[in-house]
Design a protein around this nucleic acid. Structure first.
Lengths: 203, 203, 203, 203
DNA sequence: GATGAATGAGGATTCATTCAT
DNA sequence: AATGAATGAATCCTCATTCAT
């Protein structure tokens, strides 16, 4: 038989590995329906695979969410490190980190929804969220602050961890706010204003 | 039979109205088990009422969550307004708002858990969360900022809404971080440091 | 509305308690479909209750099987003891026990099927089967034999436990054979012949 | 690549044919997990073949069970016939048949488990069990009895079929009892006592 | 107002079987 | 002959909600 069997590919492109297709479909479905309401069969359909196939690649619905979180965070940290590689001035490093956060999530609304909403379903997940890679992220910001304080460009009477959490908190709120707003403004547009606030303060 | 039947009252005092007992039980059970895993029967047991009784006072499980949120926010805003009543200096008003936020949630861990975790279960809830009373809360902070800018004590090149969201974002992150941390430090202890950061900035 | 709502009662009579109706329905459905192929919903339908109702009375499908076994054995032992109450001659006691076994199961084919087939689904169940009440049953026969040996009416060179197991094995095989045979002969008709064999032997 | 790839051969030796390896693995896995809980993939792994390979030799999971039963019974009957070949005295023939039964199953616990437990999963299987080769087995015993009665060494007032079933029932119970007992006594040790009971009776 | 027994819809997961390679 | 990745049908149980008492 010479005819090429063309299969429907609702969510992703052919050629992509099944694992990737499933993961992408999960992000989309979780974003659309919410984790608890999302049906595994819906994800399977969106990925163009059979229900059972998902269990060849993942341990179950929850593993899907954990994996999304883990891979996203890893990618995020890697690209952030790359962007910071050439920049040494602490002030500039803060600006880049802020912009990078907003750009990354601003580029993929479904991922942002999963990141801001679905990943925080339970204390258990929140703990995961905070103890693992997010801790690394906060650690990166904290080090920028510490460095800046050591160099004398940042005030020394602020606790670096508190600053790191604050930056994260602001960014987190901006992303959430952006997700919920109907308007289609670019999330990263706020990067400079946020940096100004953090760096210069209200007074 | 003359003997008075004494029923166990696990969560609340008997004097309290049934409605209050149910609401308080819901906060506790939601905090302990998470919204989706919480069983209505568990809440009923904790409140010392029959399952069906809950439906005399509320429309269902979801209504419990909505009501908790609504009443908490209303109480919160009322007490914040009282605290701000006598204070006119914008800087001081910011400080009071920050401290009030941390004190209120720092006083009731279960409520904090529900507020930080359970209320954000879905985009739908997040929307509710943002559009309603939270909007009022952000509005209050925004007005403080606007006032301060009008008086010339706050810099004028920061968008008031952005500042309001930032303050909220920082506080939100602090509360979440506090919930997840094992240590039993007082949440409100960080109020001054946060105010310093917001007011003075890093530089 | 004055009309009395008449509900279908496929398996059992109204008036019977829900618990009894469910148990009886389970015996029938297990006998018809086999334990593993039996659907809980099928049992519910046969009992005239909702699926969930079964879980108000039992822990699950397996508990249904265990309960059937337990209650059947208890009833069986009680009625056997009653029948033996007035009989003292060991030979006669053996005859009564044999007849009672065949009559009890011969009266309820579905129960016999569950007893002979479904209760032996797994080593685990077989163990349950053997260690618990069945042990009591074997114990009763063993004591009859011991008594007969003490009185000098039974040969003393046969181990009472072996005899008890043999009697049980013969009866068990007869019941199984009866279940599988198409012919509708009365099971208890074989009681005397079996007793003769056990008592007199082949020679 | 010159190195010989040595594969693990959990259950059987490599020299054995694939078909034999699969069958032996099935006996072991059925005995260990029970028929319904046994996974085809587990059998495949134990046999050192791919899942799909099993379907080249057998029609499916059920066919494995049927085949085990059939081959076991055929082997059993053949070896029984050999053992009986030189023996003419009815009494002795009965003794040999009894010992042979206990020795055969006492030699292979997994096979005994499958034979006593797994083969009786359903009425359907029980029917198979009884109508086919087991019928031949019962037939062999029945003929011994008939012969003995014709020769005048066995009592004539016992129905040969009933005696055959009784012998089978006793042996069956002994094997089951042996499987379930923790103690490691030899099953065949009971052969003589059983023969005595059957031949001489209790009285 | 209160009760709590009863309902029944809904879904994650398993695993025997297939078939392209 | 052999593989093993992929399939997808099939079901037990939970629990929010109702309503007769």
């Amino acid at each position: 038989m010479a005819r090429t069997q063309i299969q429907p590919q609702p969510t992703a492109f052919q050629g992509t590995s099944k694992r990737e297709r499933i993961l992408r479909a999960a992000v989309d479905v979780f974003a659309r329906s919410g984790y608890f309401n999302a049906k595994v069969s819906e994800i399977a359909k969106a990925a163009g695979v059979a229900d059972g196939t998902i269990y060849l690649y993942f341990d179950g619905k929850e593993d899907l969410l954990v994996t999304i979180f883990r891979e996203h965070t890893r990618n995020y940290l890697q690209s952030l490190e790359q962007q910071l590689a050439d920049i040494s001035r602490p002030e500039e490093r803060i600006r880049v980190a802020i912009r990078h956060h907003l750009e990354t999530l601003g580029r993929d609304r479904a991922l942002a929804v999963v990141s801001q909403v679905e990943l925080r379903h339970s204390l258990k997940f929140m703990g995961l969220f905070s103890q693992m890679e997010v801790a690394d992220y906060l650690g990166m910001i904290r080090k920028i602050v510490e460095h800046g304080q050591a160099e004398g460009v940042f005030r020394r009477n602020l606790h670096p961890t508190l600053v790191a959490k604050s930056v994260f908190g602001i960014l987190d709120e901006m992303v959430t706010s952006w997700i919920l707003s109907e308007k289609e403004h670019a999330l990263a547009d706020q990067a400079d204003a946020i940096a100004d606030l953090i760096l210069t303060g209200l007074l």
